[in-house]
Nucleic acid binder design. Structure first.
Length: 421
RNA sequence: GGAGAGGUGCCAGAGUGGUCGAAUGGGGCACCCUGCUAAGGUGUUAACUGUGAAAACGGUUCGAGGGUUCAAAUCCCUCCCUCUCCGCCA
């Protein structure tokens, strides 16, 4: 959510943000109209309230007769405008939730992820001197993912990680957790089952209702632990000394993947249920600080991919690929040999006050003023998605897969051999 | 699932229609005092928001929403949340 004062003063800027994020800019006109009405009504209503309050003061000390007189007078004050104000207020809030944050000037304009700009690549893309297999085939041969029984049990996009596949996941989590904790992140195991307000606070609702599972008792299954972690401090005023607050949350993540029915139907790339370690940061209300930490959390994730020896690239997302609240976003994309392209595995973004306004997360600055904090988040590692790249990039001629050295200390094997050839 | 209790300021906790933005205690902050010294005293200590250049002056907020009333922390309704006991359960 933006500050209405900011919108009033920068109406054209926000209108432009709508255009860039492909939101109908008419919403701004509507908002300004409602805002004007709201201000007028508010002033009128407050005037009436003032009269009432003054009368109340008098009544306290008035004699019986005076009292009756005042009461009669007060009865005549009509309250129609109160109702009107309430209705306008409701409309106002609804609109405010739909107003997008303004993208950073450095964000390239575009319509979709096709317009994202590559800003960095890392690692050498392997030249295979044998016919390569995709991760589905590899994992079947190694008996580390069971898709058939996965769909039998869990339906479309269901899967079981099995044997070394299961162990590999634990090893990756351990590696990632160890690395991020050495940087002062506080480890959290976060709820996935959350209340509606938690999703509104983070900006997933009301916009993206279709992407989220709703339970039979009106709870929701969050698609990321960002939701719970951001809500962790909702309604709080933090001390300056505790900022930046750095959390790494672990949780199962649920996504309906509505709108991508035909995409990535095979394998573990796009599933309804996965696990993720997520970085979430609350920091001071400073653009420089947000930008600095944004680079930092992006690097943190890159270091994990590097430890896993997976070639990747960093892209700067175009305006069309930004969420409602995001100011700027980098995606990390890991190399997938069988598809001969990079595929998204991480998403690092910052929001300025967009989320903290909704969640009411503040802190007291040096001057003692209460400010909204800034928020950022990034994937640290998501499984099983990253396994796709890991398995394919490290596959060997004989069908086995070599385990990257960084994981050895968490496992009692250094390669996975085919079990049924 | 059954039964009960409760949601008030940074915390604890009083308050059952106007004298309550809210007693009292604790904590925080400021100043003072000092041979009862990990002590004593005095004062102070909410957030949001409107008009305004500012000073200032208003408005809102006692879980949320609605209602009764000239007037609601206090009465009524709905919802949410928390806790306790029993049951069930990893």
């Amino acid at each position: 959510m933006l500050d209405i004062k900011f919108i009033r003063q920068n109406t054209e800027l926000v209108r432009d943000a709508c255009r860039k994020k492909q939101i109908n800019p008419e919403i701004i006109d509507k908002l300004m109209e409602v805002d004007k009405k709201r201000s007028e009504l508010m002033q009128s209503v407050e005037k009436t309230r003032r009269l009432k309050n003054e009368a109340n003061e008098k009544i306290k000390e008035a004699s019986h007769e005076e009292r009756q007189k005042i009461i009669e007078k007060m009865k005549e004050l009509n309250n129609d405008r109160e109702k009107e104000l309430q209705e306008i207020e409701k409309k106002f809030q609804e609109l405010m939730l739909l107003i997008p944050n303004v993208p950073d000037a450095s964000v390239p304009e575009g319509l979709s992820d096709n317009d994202n700009v590559e800003v960095k690549t890392w690692g050498n893309i392997r030249e295979f001197d044998f016919p390569i297999k995709d991760h589905v085939e590899i994992s079947k041969n190694l008996d580390i993912v069971d898709f058939d029984r996965g769909t039998k049990v869990a339906g479309f996009r269901g899967y079981f990680l099995k044997n070394e596949g299961a162990l590999l996941s634990f090893a990756i989590w351990s590696l990632a957790l160890e690395k991020i904790m050495s940087k002062g992140f506080i480890p959290m195991v976060a709820p996935s089952l959350v209340k509606e307000e938690a999703l509104i606070g983070t900006g997933y609702l009301p916009q993206s209702k279709a992407d989220v599972y709703e339970t039979s008792d009106d709870m929701y299954l969050a698609g990321t632990s960002e939701v719970a972690l951001m809500n962790y401090h909702s309604g709080e005023i933090l001390a300056l000394e505790e900022l930046p607050k750095k959390y790494v949350g672990f949780s199962p993540c649920f996504r309906t993947e509505i709108g991508s029915y035909g995409k990535d139907v095979k394998g573990i790339f796009r599933v309804h249920e996965f696990f993720k370690l997520e970085q979430v940061i609350l920091c001071e209300n400073s653009e420089e600080e947000s930008k600095r930490l944004h680079e930092e959390i992006t690097r943190n994730a890159e270091e994990i991919l590097e430890a896993l020896e997976i070639p990747y690239r960093r892209v700067l997302n175009s305006t069309g690929d930004l969420g409602l609240g995001q100011v700027k976003k980098y995606d990390l994309e890991a190399w997938v040999p069988s598809q001969n392209k990079y595929r998204e595995t991480h998403s690092a973004s910052y929001f300025y006050e967009f989320q903290t306004r909704r969640l009411n997360i503040k802190y007291k600055n040096k001057e003692g003023e209460i400010k909204y904090a800034h928020s950022l988040n990034n994937t640290l590692i998501a499984t099983p998605r990253v396994l796709m790249s890991l398995l394919e990039n490290h596959q060997q001629r004989d069908g086995s897969v070599k385990i990257p050295e960084a994981l050895h200390k968490y496992l009692n094997f250094t390669e996975i051999k085919p079990k049924n050839e």
